[in-house]
């Protein structure tokens, strides 16, 4: 853990460097059919409006799947928090994220000899899952918790020296609109982004959670 990164407390706001008193957040977004999305589209729109967040629509930028490694590595270098935003497809990300990892997280950049570019950054997923929350446990039909299913990503983050946060998750996404849950979820999402940006998220309290949005009042400090 780099020393300048306090786990919980907010640093005193300095008038000078904007980059030192704010975390720069990179949201990599992937939804292959955004027009039909009910949950990710409002999340995408809300994210675009948060100051200090870089939002990248991967399928828009690389429609043929041909990822620009240099550009993506420069983006990673320029941010403190990396977030994968996506629907959960077969207990993982949409395929473009796998291609992105295969290409961008090079030896010598992300891991291995001289591979320290990502050290100390925060990593987490903001995902929407079709199944209900109770299905994601040993007794449920998905058998594993969402954290357990994301183990490969957690290990990827760890090998790259990043801090893995629990996912910000929406369960039962197919019925979220009908049940009127989208609005509150989007509001929560913006709160989390702003708190991360302004060092108001209690990392120590958040790290062991199954999902980041279990009880936001418990991990977010008021501005």
């Amino acid at each position: 853990m780099p020393s300048h990164e306090p786990l919980a407390a907010s640093p005193g706001r300095t008038e000078v460097g904007v980059t030192t008193d704010r975390r720069r957040i990179l949201c990599l977004f992937a939804h292959p059919s955004i027009d039909r999305s009910e949950a990710n589209r409002p999340l995408f729109a809300a994210t675009a409006a948060v100051a200090g967040v870089t939002l990248v629509d991967l399928y828009a930028e690389y429609p043929s799947g041909e990822i620009d490694v240099d550009r993506e590595q420069a983006r990673l270098r320029g941010h403190d928090v990396i977030c994968f935003m996506h629907p959960l497809y077969w207990y993982s990300t949409p395929s473009i994220f796998k291609e992105w990892q295969d290409l961008v997280l090079e030896h010598g950049f992300a891991y291995g000899v001289g591979g320290t570019a990502l050290h100390g950054k925060l990593f987490f997923n903001a995902l929407t899952a079709g199944g209900p929350e109770q299905a994601y446990c040993a007794a449920g039909y998905n058998h594993f918790t969402i954290r357990e299913l994301l183990c490969p990503l957690e290990q990827t983050a760890r090998l790259c020296g990043m801090v893995f946060l629990p996912p910000f998750a929406l369960f039962g996404a197919r019925t979220a609109v009908d049940e009127g849950r989208i609005g509150a979820h989007v509001t929560d999402w913006v709160r989390v982004l702003e708190a991360l940006r302004d060092y108001r998220l209690d990392l120590a309290a958040a790290l062991p959670l199954t999902k980041l949005n279990a009880d936001l009042d418990a991990i977010l400090l008021e501005p």
Binding site: V69, D102, L103, E106, Y111, G112, V113
Partner: peptide
Amino acid sequence: ERGWTPPPRGFNREL
């Protein structure tokens, strides 16, 4: 080939 290049032999010893 970039991106699909395997890491150099013996990279896991470093890790």
